[in-house]
Structures are given as C-alpha cells and as structure tokens.
Write a protein that binds this DNA or RNA. Structure first.
Lengths: 191, 191
DNA sequence: TTCAAATATAAACAATTGTTGATGTAGATT
DNA sequence: AATCTACATCAACAATTGTTTATATTTGAA
C-alpha cells in the first residue's frame, strides 16, 4: 500500500498553484498552506523549489520527444506524419494541460545548467519538425515553403491548445479540435 | 531641449532587462545598476515597479487595437482585412520586438485591477479577429471554419514573430516573413 | 547671479523568501 | 517491546526585495 501518494498530491498541488500564480509568484508557503501543513514539511517531498519545476518540465518534454521520435521513425508519408504530430500534441495537451502550460510559460525560470539543457531540448524539437517539413517539401506532398518559418508557425499555432483544457470553462472536443487544426494547417482559411 | 531623455533611457533599459530576465526576476537594483546610479534614484522616473510593466503593456496594446480598428472599419473584403491584420502585427513585432515580447510573456504579472483590465483587452482583440473571420465565412471568401478555433490558431501562429527580432541573431526579412505567413494561413502547407 | 527643476546618494524600513536543524508522533514491521 | 519510516511542527537564518525619507549636487533659464 501507501505508494508515495502524499508526494504525488504535493506535486499536483504545486503544479496547480504554479499554473494559477506563476512559478516565481508561488511560494513554498503557498503550496504548504494548500496542503494544510507547515512549510518545512514540504522538504520531506522535494529537495528544492527548483526541483518541482525541473521535474515537470523534463518529464513532459520527454513525452513530447518520444512521441515525435516514434512518428519520425515510421514509414508514413510526411503529410501523414505531420497530422500525427499535431494529433499527438493535442492529446497530450488535453490529458495534461497544466504540465503543458508549464512548458509554455515557465521554462524561463529554470536555472543553469538546467536552463541551457531545456533550451537545447526545445530547439531539438524544432529541428525534428523542420526535418519533417523538409522531407514533405522534397517529396512533393507540401508546397515549396520556407521551412524555418513554417516550423515556427505550425508549432506556434498549436501551442495555445492546453489553454482550452487547463481551466474547465471551455470544453472543446479534442477530436473536433484536431479536425479543425489539421484542416487549417493543411489547407488554410481559403475556399 | 532635454526632453525627458533620461527617463526614456531608464524605461528602455528596464524593457531590455525585463526581456532578458523576466519581470519578477528583474529587480529595481538591476535596472539602477545598468543605469549606473543608485536604486533610490529610479523613483524619480517611475512611481513603482508595476508602473513600468503597465506602461509598456497598455501602450502597446493600444497600438494593436487602433490598428485593428482601422482595418475592421475599412471596406475591404475579409480576406484582404486578414492580410492587413497579419501584416500589421509583423510590422509592430519587427519594430518593437521587446514590447511585444512583454505582451506575450509578462502580462500575468499585472496586479488587480490592471490585470483584469488587460485580460479584457486581450479578449476584446480576439473578439475583433473572430468577427473578421465570421464576416469572411459568411461572405464566402473563407471556408466554413470553426471561428473560435480558427481565431486561436491564427493569433497564435503569429505570436512568435517578435522572437525573430528581439535578439539580433536571426534577421528575417519582414516582407518575406509576411509573404510566407500569409501563404500558410490562407493556403496551408498542402500543394 | 539667482532659483527652480532635474538628478543624484545614503541609510534605513518592513516584509517576504527558500531553506535548515532539531525534534516529535503515529503506525507498521521486526 | 523495540525499531523504523512516513509525516509533521517550531524556530530561526540570511538574503533579497520594493520603497521612503532626508538631503545633496548639478544645470539650464530668468
């Protein structure tokens, strides 16, 4: 029994609070108060405040990377791969919106050397997307686009998705969301 | 002569520093040190640290809104209006990348009641974009898209642009950038 | 030269922050 | 019964922070 459930609760509360107030604005006392125990007790669960951020950031980043790698390694054509990358992102963002929110908003608060490490992972993810697009342009399934710009545009155009699931207000159906985004990315707004 | 140039310098240094380290991580002492004077002197130029943030955020927000309003008020067809909104955003982001960076990254650090005020402006801007898209769908220049989702996707897809101009490393030509983004938004990646 | 405005410093403040160390308790395991 | 582990508190720390007050210097205009 008793499988670190208290620690998981602590981390979950931390995640929620950091989402609400931002990492810097969230104090260890804030977290402890919501857990209903003293600040000092927090250090029975984590080594430092920074550790909370690092834990979520690198764990979720890895999830994105392994998914991306599986898709890139497949033998589907580039357009199918792009659809899968978009689909995968939406699924993660719908399942773990707070973790994705952290990735989008709080990575600047990492300290060296973790900061550089994370920035490298980010830039690697962009490189993987660029490779996918270049593949599609070369094989002719994509138009002759500027890969650098297209990478930034596409990644940016899905970056907001977590927001539709982070606060329970607007509950968009992930399937419908995927259909719409894929349609926009592939064919744009034009008729 | 001597028209508040020292204050402008102070604000510019603040902007740069906030861009580098984030608003919360930037201390009044950091700014003063880069200005080469004592912290206390800073308060001859601004009322409080929050004021620096508010000043840039609301000033730049207004610039976006007036531009958007002019475009909406014109009699161009919706597709032409959308092109102009995208073009205008890119021009502002290229001319004032640090201000736009602040809008993207630091608005969460506003305090009430300015926070709510700013969030309302943000949501109003989205509403204006949604109206533009709805107009285009109704008139048939756009496909039958989900306006809510399309709004989020399009606004998000240009939100990164400041990043290409904030640090001088990658100098993308704004004209080429506009051409590429418009092409992606209107026709997507497909052939 | 005089005088007001702009620009600067020194010293201190109250509050907040992340973290540590010493210690206690309840329940499970030996 | 003895021990170990998870979970908790209390007190205190050193550092940092935004801001204020009182005061001085520089400077441009009258």
């Amino acid at each position: 029994m008793r499988v670190r459930t208290k620690r998981e609760e602590f981390l979950q509360v931390s995640l929620q609070l950091i989402h609400e107030k931002g990492f810097k604005a969230t104090t260890m006392r804030d977290i402890a108060e919501r857990m209903d125990f003293d600040v000092s007790n927090s250090y029975n669960y984590i080594k430092s405040k920074q550790d909370i951020l690092e834990l979520f950031l690198f764990r979720t980043s890895e999830e994105f990377h392994t998914t991306m790698d599986h898709i890139l390694d497949s033998s589907y054509p580039a357009d199918e791969k792009l659809k899968q990358v978009i689909s995968a992102h939406i699924q993660v963002a719908a399942r773990k919106p707070l973790e994705v929110a952290l990735m989008v908003n709080e990575w600047r608060n990492l300290k060296e050397p973790k900061y550089s490490e994370y920035v490298a992972l980010r830039s690697l993810y962009e490189k993987k997307m660029a490779k996918l697009l270049r593949e599609g342009v070369k094989s002719g399934v994509f138009a002759a686009l500027n890969v650098k710009i297209a990478t930034a545009v596409i990644l940016s155009s899905i970056r907001w998705v977590y927001d539709a699931y982070a606060d329970t207000k607007s509950n968009i159906n992930p399937i419908e969301l995927e259909r719409q985004i894929v349609s926009l990315v592939f064919d744009g707004v034009s008729h």
